[in-house]
Simulated assay, not measured.
Amino acid sequence: MNHIQLKNISKIYNASSTQAQSALALLAEGMDSIKVKEQTGYSVGLYDINLDIKAGELHCIMGLSGSGKSTLIRHINRLIDPTSGEIWVDTALNRDHATHKMADRQSATDNTSTVVEERSATAINILALNDKQLQHYRQQTVSMVFQHFGLVPHMTVMQNVAYGLRVRKMSTKDRHEIARYWLNEVGLSNLENSYPDELSGGMQQRVGLARALATDNPILLMDEAFSALDPLIRAQLQDQLLELQDRLNKTIVFITHDIDEAVKVGQRISMLNGGRLIQTGTPSELRHNPADDYVEQFMSAKS
């Protein structure tokens, strides 16, 4: 069952619709993004991306700097709008609530999951959302963990984690209870009254992860979330993410330029180069059947 579908997504920066068409025409003829920039002056973010991300999948997006990874992930929560294409998200998919909904933890029932029938009618093109609908989509469907933590410096750790729930106008008591639970899950239960600048980089990223999980949204976007951390801390957070995902079964889109990280955490990997999607597959598929030399070089670089 697909949770996210990108259909024919292209992004040309700093160009009008008419100007973008000239760049898209050159791309369609096979010209690479660097030459398109030289000839037209317009930067290519993405070109004709078609990608299905399955419900409950941890999907890695790989590529060198400038390949379009961050541009792609920011389309899913519409921090960036495409020049052309469609983005379909099934907003009706249920989740397993047992491990992280407060009421479910208290009731301790055996109904830990709900099987959802796939219905294409529940998918929406998020590009058609108005401002109010987009705000609701961001609050209820998708959360994001940023590379440089994105914490509010004048808020305590507790307040940072509870912020998304505060926006939903949840009571202070309830949102702090949920925030406290997730701080415990990421190993920061004794730091709720600290401020971000009192924490190490690894601790700050754990706060960012707890904040994203506290809203209980089914889609989690992680843009180079661990790349700024020391190798040991990075490995610990990778392990923690996998352990949490094993219980939460969220749909996670994980951006990285590190092939070792992608192979470790990703169920499938999509390789971007120059704004184009080169290949999607399991780590084994990419290793044994690379689509081109670019993919082969990435996979052979794995330590």
Results as ranks from 00 to 15, higher is better:
G63I: 07
L242R: 07
T256I: 08
A210L: 09
A15E: 00
I255N: 03
E177P: 00
R175W: 04
K11D: 01
I34V: 12
K11A: 07
D293A: 15
N273L: 08
E118M: 11
N289V: 06
M158H: 04
Y13W: 12
N111I: 12
S17R: 11
L26M: 12
D81P: 00
T18K: 14
R247C: 10
A98P: 00
E86I: 03
Q21T: 12
I255T: 01
L244H: 05
R78N: 08
V152C: 09
I269G: 03
N125A: 09
I252K: 05
I255W: 06
V253K: 11
L221P: 01
T91N: 11
C60L: 10
A15Y: 08
T256F: 10
S43K: 05
S16T: 14
Q147P: 09
L127F: 10
T280S: 13
I9H: 02
D174M: 07
F149E: 03
I61V: 15
G202S: 11
H59K: 03
M158N: 05
Y163F: 15
A103I: 13
M62L: 15
S65Y: 10
L188C: 03
I219D: 01
I178E: 10
F298K: 07
I252D: 02
L24C: 06
N14R: 14
H257Y: 04
Q133E: 15
L93N: 02
Q139F: 05
F146G: 10
T83R: 04
N130M: 08
P153M: 08
R74D: 01
N125Y: 12
